[in-house]
Amino acid sequence: MSSAFADIAFGGLFQGSLYAMMAVGLALVWTTIGVFNFSHGVLMMLGAYVAWQLIEIGLPAWAAFPLAIVAMGGVGWLLQASVVRPLIGRPNIVLVVVITTLAAGSLIENGALTVWGPRSKQLPSLIAGNTTIGGVGVSLHQIAIIVITPVILGALWLFLNRTRLGLAMRAVAQNEDASHLVGLNVTALYGLAFGIAASLAGLAGIFIGGYRFMSPVMGSDPLLKALIVVVFGGISSVSGPIFAAYLIGFFEAACNYYFGLYWTPTLLFAVLILILMVRPEGIFASRSRGLA
């Protein structure tokens, strides 16, 4: 019994951390710009490959990982400038951005396939080695993910709530017109939001690449999960999806344990549909849109 509990607790924390890392970037872009970035999964994949490439040319992991994350910020900004910014102000922006980000994602994905080939690769773990907690064998890499994720998310919360720049971003999310009026550089803030989101996606890619084999199509499944987490948690805030990510992580871990891997996705979707019927705005949502 204690083993079952440890299994579920650990599995839930681990999956929840990965989902939170993916979902928070998606939520950041949605809350500030009001569009869904369907290339978010591909950005995650690219982050992992950039890190792999940096290590391949001889950089140590402690330098390659941060460098890759910074580079992904640049990629995110570039992506925003090329396929999102020109469309801002267009009446059907939500739909058009769906297709432009999907297309950009396909472009990057196939580009990665051409550059790096379809052969699976793997990143070094954040920390090598294994240990046992409560009778469950776990790798230190997974422990590192469980520890680092809340730290990063906490830092993001501090940034959004305690710094001038973060407050400016929340202001843009709440009221774009008023932000223009008080002289905020809305375009730059949009770019920043997208850049941070891409960096977080890159970090998630490094997390996943360290314990699973990487392939150019590795981003599509996490993107779908992140999408579910974001809508489930309520798209009006950044904190809602984070709670939802852990909740879904635990739910999946429990389902895996009691009903088997086979039924978990079916159960998850059935429960999600039911909950959305009762609370259409997500379980943790408040009535207003803003970065809290």
Binding site: L227, V231, T266
Partner: peptide, 25 residues
């Protein structure tokens, strides 16, 4: 039926969940 009360982007999740549900079945 489940999307009657929903708006815009929320419909994506439910309809998407429906597709996944059919596939899983």
């Amino acid at each position: 039926i489940p999307i009657l009360r929903l708006k815009g982007i929320y419909i994506i999740l439910v309809t998407f969940g429906f597709a996944q549900l059919v596939m899983q079945i």
